[in-house]
Every structure is written in structure tokens, then in C-alpha cells.
Amino acid sequence: MFVPLAQSLVFGLLVGALYGLAAVGLSLVFGVTKFLNVAHGELLMLGGYASFWAFTLRGVDPFLTLPLTMVFLLVIGVVLYKLLFAHMVKLTEEAKIQNTLLVGFGLSLILQNVALRLWTADTRGITTSYSRMAFTFLGVRFPIVRVASLGIALIALFALDLFLRRTYTGKALRATVENWEAATLMGIDIQRVYLLSFVMGAALAGAAGCLVSVGYSIDPGMGMSWTLKGLIVMVLGGLGSFMGTFVGGIVLGVTESATGYFLTLTYREVVGLVLFILVLVFRPQGLFGTKER
């Protein structure tokens, strides 16, 4: 009884870290720009394919390509932002959300179909020489690759936190989240802050995609479900706290696998949505968010 349950909770925790990482990117972009980029999952998918092809064609280790994948997505982020999002900066918050939803859905369809065309619908994954390695603790298996992914997700998160707290640019970003008009009056060029947060979000999606491709599997249609997980986690964790968002990811991962264990796997996907509704009804500021002041 203990081992299978613990095992499934551990797997939940490990996948939850990736939910968290995906959601942090989404939440960063939304928090600063109020752009709800529903193509975030597709960016993650592109990150996954980038490391998959680097590994398959060149044999480069996915953990080594991770920074490159992030840079690659950063560049894609710049292009997408300039092309599709930049002109929406001046809109009201509500109009921004609506417009970006539309643009994001369109973009996600395009990216999915381009991926389908270029790389077929096959499910892919990276199998390295150490992919099957795991260590066992109290009878519970910890696959090395997924544990490393958890570590990397944590490092990315701490780096982000440090950036936001310690650097002038990071503070400018937080100021823009609180009040963009007051931020402008500080002499902060909020257009640049918007661009920066958007591309940082894209880079985080790239990192998450890379980790998904090595610990799990990727396919052209994966984006939508990752965006959905990201949205659920974002609401679960609450806006404004990236650590909270990350923990929210782990909560979702663990809840999903507990559901899979006690009920059946079919209910796994449903539980996230149930959680989503419960949080919205009983704690709309999220598990770790603060109420509007």
C-alpha cells in the first residue's frame, strides 16, 4: 500500500515542478503585460522539439542544450512580440486580455500545424544513456532525469526571484506590475519592460519544453494541455507570487497522481479543473496570492 501510493505521489511532485515552471512563465507575462498568451504551451512544444532535434541530429545532451533552447525561444519571443503583441500595449486591461486570447489561439493553431507539417504527429522523446537510471529510497523510485529537471526548475525559479529582487531592471518589472503609470513616471520605459517580460516568459517555456522532452514526451498537439495546466496553476498559486505559482504546480501534480491512484487515470485530467473551480469559488486570490490592497 505505502510504496505504490508514495511512488505515484513522487511522480506527481516531479511532473508538478514542470507544471510550475510552465505556469511561472505564463504568470510572469500576464502579471506584467496583462497579455494572456494561450500559445504559451506551443512555445513549450517548440522548446521540446529544439532539444529533441539537437539530440537526435547532433547527439547533444538535452541538459546542455537547455540554455540554447532558452535563447532560441527568447528570439522567437522577440519576433512574436514585435509582430503580434506590441501594438496592444496601449489597450485597456480587459481589451488586452480579450485580444491576446484571440491572437494566442490563432497563434497556437498555426504553430501546432507547422509542427505537424514539419515533424509529423509522432510522439517523440529523448532517450539518453542515463534515461533509465534511477535511485531507490524506501522502495520508491526516483528517475534521475526527472529529479534533475526538478532541480533545474528550482534553479530557474531562484534565478528569476533574484533577478526580480536584486536588479534595477527586475525592480522596474515589479513596479510595472503594481502600477504601470507610476512606473512610467519613474522614467521606466514600459514598452521595454513588456518586451522583456514577454521574452523571459518565452525562454521559461523553452526551458520547460526541454525538460519535458527529456523526462516525458512531446508531440505537436501537446501545447493546449500545457497551457491549460499553466492557467490552472496560475490561478491556483495566485498572481504576484512566483514561488506560490511553483508550489501550485506541485499541488496540481500531486493531486492529479493521487486521483489517478485512488480513482482511475481517466479522472486525472478532470481533477485539475475541479481544483480550478474550487479555488475560484473559495479563494479567488489563489492559495498563496494576496488580496488586492
Binding site: 515589479r174 513596479a175 503594481e178 502600477n179 507610476a182 513616471l185
Partner: peptide, 8 residues
């Protein structure tokens, strides 16, 4: 109203 950054 000042519009200070209350979270900082």
C-alpha cells in the same frame, strides 16, 4: 494619491 508601490 501618491501611487507608491505598496508591495515594495
Amino acid at each position: 494619491g501618491g501611487k507608491i508601490f505598496t508591495g515594495m
